[in-house]
Nucleic acid binder design. Structure first.
Length: 478
RNA sequence: UCCCUAGUAGCUCAGUUGGUUAGAGCGGCGGACUGUUAAUCCGUAGGUCGUAGGUUCAAGUCCUACCUGGGGAGCCA
């Protein structure tokens, strides 16, 4: 008897059909005569109810059917006599595939804290919450490729190991095969990287953007989707040392085209989630609702699915940095001196300011553009005013910056001048500058933090709960 | 890295101004129950109170240091 996945059984199974199901036991309950086993195989958040007539099975076998155990069940589908499910499997044969000692198995049939499950990340996939999260995460990864493929973008694999740290996007992890106890030294007593594996100092990438631009300047439109590494000592609910980033880069796109793409892209992912992940979203929405009950009325947030639909059906607010500063300086918290950090043209916005704009003032995703050049990266398009650059940050409620992007400076002279001002070595970056020397065109791109986006779609609060095995300072378990 | 906060049974927590044998719910185990939905009911086992010092007649409780978790900030996606 071929094994069927529980998702298929629940969707297409007919009463009277003989099937085999395999999975992990969530709970077992029942009386002297009948046992009910909730079986889950990961294909869906829904469980298949197994009905076992106690008389037909020996006692010891049923004793091993405990939470967490893996079993195989051969039986006949029947319309369910109880409520809660339409169809159930009347068991003829049950085989224990793998026992799970109930004294030791950590995932009990009860509510666990997210902190506890994080410490049991190897087993948390077996919970409803994390099953839902990782099915949604998969669907979103697939939808990313689907979206760009449909638009004719090329998926470019940019290197993980890189010798360039020119972007200055943060502290990097060193990659080396030198003996750390006893490295070769130069005459001046410094580490001699010419003897290292790559013949120079190398690191894990902090961004594929610069290489992405090279691809875009021939293929037209590319995107990357890969792991990214930042050795920052960041301990927050929205930072990881190893995370996944999606970075499209497009020739012939100006800043507005870039914003249009970013907005359409995010909305297409949300649409895909609503179309394909409803069972999981509904579970997560219900879970959030339970949590919200403990909060005062005015602090409760929108229902998860409503929130997704709201973002889908409303235009993102687009304002310039300068306009944002005006709004902030005219805001109540500014006048009542409630902001901890000063607001004035030229300073970078702090998260309290971003949150005010997104969560209080507009209550909607916001795209901020045209930042002062002094607080942004060297490669951003210099505007005619001489003060601002063609940057754009997409800010989401609760999460903050979900996308950072810009039009890129395509003028060789302006770019070199800016690099010199910011002490970025133009000679080491010859390959990057070559794109401006030969057939340079206006182009744009952005980076989407994948986990931050998954936070938004799942409604989870901590980024460590939307990646399977989080890498954070002082933590690389599993 | 800084600020705040927590660490007591497998899990989630309570534990009064320091005072006798440290409690509950859930989970586990045993039993009861003709179909349950986090089943219900009865019973039962389970603790070096994060670690190391210190104060005291007496420390889960007070002090110091460290470790770990959580929240916030900075940095950013």
């Amino acid at each position: 008897m071929a094994r069927l996945k529980i998702k298929n059984i629940l969707q297409q199974g007919k009463p009277g059909e003989k099937v085999t199901a395999k999975g992990w036991v969530r709970t077992k309950r029942g009386s002297k005569n009948v046992n009910f086993i909730a079986l889950n195989d990961g294909s869906t958040i829904l469980n298949l109810q197994i009905v076992a007539d106690v008389a037909n099975f020996n006692e010891e076998l049923l004793r091993d059917v405990t939470s967490g155990a893996a079993i195989s069940v051969l039986g006949e589908l029947a319309e369910s006599a109880g409520s809660g499910q339409n169809i159930e499997l009347i068991a003829n044969e049950i085989e224990i595939l793998g026992k799970a000692d109930p004294e030791k198995y950590p995932i009990q049939p009860k509510k666990h804290s997210l902190e506890f499950l994080r410490e049991n990340a190897h087993l948390r996939f077996r919970t409803n919450t994390f099953g839902a999260i990782f099915r949604i995460r998969h669907a979103m990864a697939f939808a990313v490729h689907n979206y760009f493929n449909n638009k004719g973008f090329n998926y470019l694999h940019t290197p993980i190991v890189t010798a360039s740290d020119a972007e200055g996007a943060g502290q990097m992890f060193r990659v080396s095969t030198l003996d750390p106890e006893n490295p070769p030294l130069t005459e001046k007593g410094r580490i001699d990287y010419s003897q290292d594996f790559f013949g120079k100092a190398t690191n894990l990438t902090v961004s594929g953007q610069l290489e992405g631009e090279l691809g875009a300047m021939a293929l037209g439109e590319i995107y990357t989707f890969g792991p990214t590494f930042r050795a920052e000592n960041s301990n927050t609910t929205r930072h990881l040392a190893e995370f996944w980033m999606i970075e499209p880069e497009m020739a012939f796109y100006d800043l507005k085209d870039n914003m249009d793409l970013a907005e359409e892209f995010l909305k297409s992912l949300i649409q895909y989630a609503l179309d394909n992940c409803m069972d999981d979203l509904q579970f997560l929405a219900g879970r959030l609702q339970q949590e919200e009950k403990n909060k005062p009325q005015d602090q409760r947030s929108m229902d998860l699915i409503e929130k997704l639909k709201f973002v889908l059906n409303n235009d993102f607010i687009r304002i310039t940095y300068t306009e944002a500063i005006d709004i902030l300086r005219n805001s109540k918290p500014f006048k009542k001196k409630k902001f901890q950090f000063h607001v004035e043209w030229g300073v970078d916005l702090q998260s309290e300011h971003e949150r005010y704009l997104v969560e209080k003032h507009f209550n909607c995703p916001v795209i901020l553009t045209d930042y002062p050049k002094g607080i942004k990266a060297f490669y951003m398009k210099q505007n005619d005013d001489g003060k601002t650059v063609g940057a754009m940050d997409v800010l989401f409620p609760q999460i903050g910056e979900i996308i950072g992007g810009s039009q890129r400076e395509e003028n060789l002279e302006k770019l070199e001048t800016r690099m010199n001002e910011m002490n970025i070595p133009t000679d080491e970056m010859w390959w990057y500058l070559d794109t401006r020397r030969f057939g340079s065109v206006e182009h744009s791109g952005f980076g989407l933090g994948f986990e931050r986006f998954i936070l938004f779609v799942t409604g989870m609060g901590n980024i460590r709960d939307v990646i399977a095995f989080p890498r954070t300072p002082k933590s690389a378990e599993f």
